[in-house]
Design a protein around this nucleic acid. Structure first.
Length: 221
DNA sequence: ACCCAGGGTCATA
DNA sequence: TATGACCATGGG
């Protein structure tokens, strides 16, 4: 891994200059962010919004309502977000854990490591979902590694691409230091960039990260 | 018609 | 530990 703080910040600056502040998940409650994190698993966000709107319009966007709802009903409301049977189960698991643990105020008092482990103990919450929740709902300095991040860093020549999730996360956190604001914007910018430029020009031949790409791509591809 | 989208679990070797 | 099957809708 050729990750270092200066290089990572150079990439961040390029993205930030190009796209500006993203301030992800503004105005949403921590619980809504948790719901979104589960529903967006391998799913386009536009579909997630429809499912959340279904819950909202039926006043089911609360942990108690989701726990009380029949699973087949919940699945129908989640239909637009795909994998609706699976996600109905996962959402119920998460809500039961959330309520039994005492909700946001109580969970907020836990230490970052313990909170992350608790999230991961919920069936249906894997590392990426847990870290989305850690960063965006609980405001903890956890660097989210998703497919986009891995692909971008790989294309830039920083990593091989097959590193374990935890190795990558800890490496990034080590280089960047605990910085919630930075992690928040960085992840949002990577996703935004991936959905626009990288998707259209997969080899980064002419994107704003070209300098970094070319510098890091020697002997690769 | 095809590909992918802000993954995760479970069974198998 | 490491693959593969499976889950499913909607937009490009």
């Amino acid at each position: 891994m050729k990750l270092d703080r200066r290089t990572l910040l150079t990439v961040f600056d390029s993205l930030y200059t190009a796209y500006g502040l993203q301030h992800w998940w503004p105005g949403e409650t921590p619980f809504e962010i948790m719901v979104g994190a589960v529903l967006t698993q391998n799913t386009a966000w536009t579909n997630v919004e429809k499912a959340i709107a279904n819950l909202e319009s039926r006043s089911k966007l609360s942990p108690e309502a989701i726990i009380a709802a029949r699973k087949d009903h919940l699945a129908n409301w989640l239909r637009p977000s795909g994998y609706f049977n699976v996600k109905a189960e996962r959402l119920k698991n998460l809500c039961r854990w959330y309520v039994e643990a005492g909700g946001f105020s109580v969970l907020s008092q836990r230490q970052t490591g313990a909170l992350r482990e608790a999230l991961l103990s919920v069936s249906g919450v894997g590392p990426e979902t847990a870290d989305d929740i850690m960063l965006y709902a609980f405001q903890r300095p956890v660097f989210v590694i998703d497919a986009y991040t891995r692909r971008l860093f790989s294309r830039l020549g920083f990593i091989a691409g097959d590193e374990a999730y935890e190795d990558l996360r800890l490496a990034c956190e080590d280089r960047l230091g605990a910085d919630v604001r930075l992690y928040n914007e960085f992840h949002a910018l990577i996703v935004l960039h991936a959905r626009t430029v990288c998707r259209v020009r997969p080899r980064c031949d002419d994107c704003l990260l070209r300098e970094s790409c070319v510098a890091g791509r020697e002997g690769r591809d």
